[in-house]
């Protein structure tokens, strides 16, 4: 009996059907078939779950089963695995410096440490909370908002790409 691996399925993963094994070789439930028909190498797990109105639990269970049966090939890995460009952090640091002065570097490193991260390993999903922590260090509301506006533009650019 093949050993089953625990796979964490994440919403931004993209799969396509494996060329090595056909779904017809495996006994699948109707919902699993429904997922199989949606796999096109473009739709994310989250999009498929939306279309089929699957709960988080069902999504995890179905994709894990299909994966364990060797029916899926990963097209795109979860985004959490990709770190943000350290240059972006330097840009934020520069903006923070304009409002709080040279202490900005220390504040940034402290904030990263609070998140158990450093300048090289910060995932995109942590960026908004980092901005939230940094913003609290700017006491002037107008300046704080300027900084938040700048950071928001940068974050939204990441979502476009």
């Amino acid at each position: 009996m093949a050993e089953k691996k625990a796979i964490e399925i994440q919403g931004d993963m993209i799969f396509r059907l494996s060329r090595k094994r056909s779904p017809q070789e495996v006994k699948l439930k109707s919902l699993e078939w429904a997922v199989v028909t949606q796999l096109n190498g473009e739709k994310t797990v989250e999009q498929i779950a939306d279309i089929l109105a699957l709960s988080e639990e069902e999504t995890q269970e179905i994709f894990s089963h299909l994966m364990n049966e060797g029916l899926l090939e990963l097209v795109r890995a979860p985004e959490e695995a990709t770190f943000i460009d350290p240059q972006l952090l330097s840009d934020l640091e520069y903006q923070l410096k304009l409002h709080v002065g040279p202490v900005a570097s220390v504040i940034l490193d402290d904030a990263l440490a609070e998140l158990h991260k450093n300048r090289q390993n910060l995932e995109r999903k942590f960026l908004p909370v980092l901005v939230e922590i940094l913003s609290q260090e700017i006491s002037n509301p107008r300046k704080r908002r300027e900084f938040q506006k700048y950071a928001l533009d940068k974050i939204m650019e990441l979502y476009k790409s």
């Binding site: 919403g11 988080e56 908004p128 909370v129 901005v131 939230e132 913003s135 908002r145 938040q148 950071a151």
Partner: peptide, 19 residues
Amino acid sequence: ARLSVEISLLRLILEVRVP
């Protein structure tokens, strides 16, 4: 929003846009 959406990002958008 879906669970994948960061609450802190929603908060940041509102902090910037509400005023």
